[in-house]
Design a binder for these strands. Sequence first.
RNA 1: GCCCUCGUAGUUCAAUGGACAGAACACCAGCCUUCUAAGCUGGUUAUGUAGGUUCGAUUCCUACCGAGGGUACCA
Length: 570
Amino acid sequence: MTNKDTIKKQIRQVLTDKYQADGLDFNVNYPPLPEMGDYATNVALVIGKELRKNPLTIANELMNNLGKNKMWNKVTVAKPGFVNFFLNQNWLTAQLGIILKQGKKYGNSNEGKGKTVVIDYSAPNIAKKMHVGHLRSTVIGAAICNLHKFLGYKVIGDNHLGDWGTQFGKLIFQYKKIYGETIKKNITVEEMEKLYLDFHQEAKERPEMEAVARKELKKLQDHEKFNYRLWQLFYRVSMTEFKKVYDLLGVKFETWHGESFYHKMLPGVIAEALKKGVAEKSQGALIVNLEKYGLPPLLIKKTDGAYLYSTSDLATIKYRHEKYSPTKNLYVVADQQCLYFEQLFKTSELLGYHDKEEMMHIKFGLILGKGGKKMSTREGEVADLMEIINEGIEKAKVRIKIKNKNLSKIELEKTAKIIALGAIKYNDLSQNRLTDIIFDWDKMLNFESGSAPYLQYTYVRVKSIFKKSKDQKIKRSNYKLLKEQAEIKLMKDLINFPEAVRAAAEEYKPNIVALHLDKLAADFHSYYEQVPILKADEKIRRARLDLIRAVAQVIKIGLELLGVKTPEKM
RNA sequence: GCCCUCGUAGUUCAAUGGACAGAACACCAGCCUUCUAAGCUGGUUAUGUAGGUUCGAUUCCUACCGAGGGUACCA
């Protein structure tokens, strides 16, 4: 139970006893200014509206009827009817000991115990490079996985690879044209991508190529020997590349069930859809009419008999339902596919493929090029993910060499990776999911304030103090000595961390955690500048060391939830 | 045409219907013989337009303007 929950619970007690208002919805917030208290509730304003009574009167009644709690020592009422809570300093300082005791578990919970969440994210296409667009899904998806695990959920992160679609017919067609009937073992992803692009270029003038490509696809789907071996080659080469990227990003999936995994189930899906009267024929194809629900029809089988992404996704929902019976089935996919997911979820519902589980499209905005326009492959604007990462690592190395000359070569390599990848990931994670992002090299590789390196630097500064201190272990300290404004501010940041974690998980918005860490880090740096730690008197020094130990601990936990590592030196 | 998302400072982004709209970058002025200056302190600048609901609107509703996306055989 978080601190806000404690306050809420106590307010609810008064509501029940005094106003017989049980199901009322109100909030508990952090007020905008410290003078206004540490927590504030609008409950009196809500009741006031409901009962048509003066909210100030209600606020006062509420204040007077509120049970005591050692968490706060003062409650006030402010216009037009806020009730403000002021934390008890002794209670606050005592939290520090609890935080340190909980260690890296601080902020976790078991509220997800017994519940399974499936998270579908990343999902790159075989035979294509991963670009910045995949980064968003991967990084946000991974953070949502981490947050849910931290809250006790069983998490199935699934990389639903695009490994069986129409593109393979085209690819095989073009491959045969260039390389003939041999297996080119050393083919690269770049070459595969070029085959695909060339096909499209040529097919514009020779549309008859499309039909041949479809035949190649059919042969693949029938497991014809050569085409299948070719597909395996494409798959293997692509996976090797993907794994390099995931290794660097530090992302691990529980399963890798791509479209090919579901291929055998597709005829069954179609048969079931027909049998249940969900699907119908239209213009030679098979569709699900969703007019009743205000949606355009969903195509599940093409005129030529081939299946689509939708067919495969329906099979996926069914599979996940039977295999995991999840409470949530989440798709971290770009906003572009918004309509598609509405159709998909509705169709799945009609088919009875899911019942209680919450189906959710966690959408995010696009990554746009300079000037806010969509990035175009043709103009060479689409940034290759590996290229960005490598550029970032190089830039980080240059920076480290200037900043810290005492690092060994190995340390330099390792640290540069941690910093560069942190910066790149944080760029996505610190922003609201829904807004479109303008891709900007400088911003993505920013190492200053408002970046992951800023947070990492906080951790390193604390570590550096400990290296110079004799007090390596937690000793019994008197935390009541922590009376500086900056210290109180830091402790409040620390106790609010679990609420940030929870809000981030509930709203699927990792940027809530990012923002919280940024505030904590800023408050730490400010504290660091104004208050001496090692030079303070013995007792105060010990208490301060514990305080910054807790700061480092929370920074590390938070960054880990975001999938960002923390270096020991930088 | 219809549907979805977004419009906040010069730029890039924050802000579960709450109190005086926050940062960062950039720009200007300071701070390293003192725990790592990737830092700190101070300064200038913003809610697309017009209505509505509300004690209170960046947030909800309506219209308009602007950007992006989608709108059955791609994913």
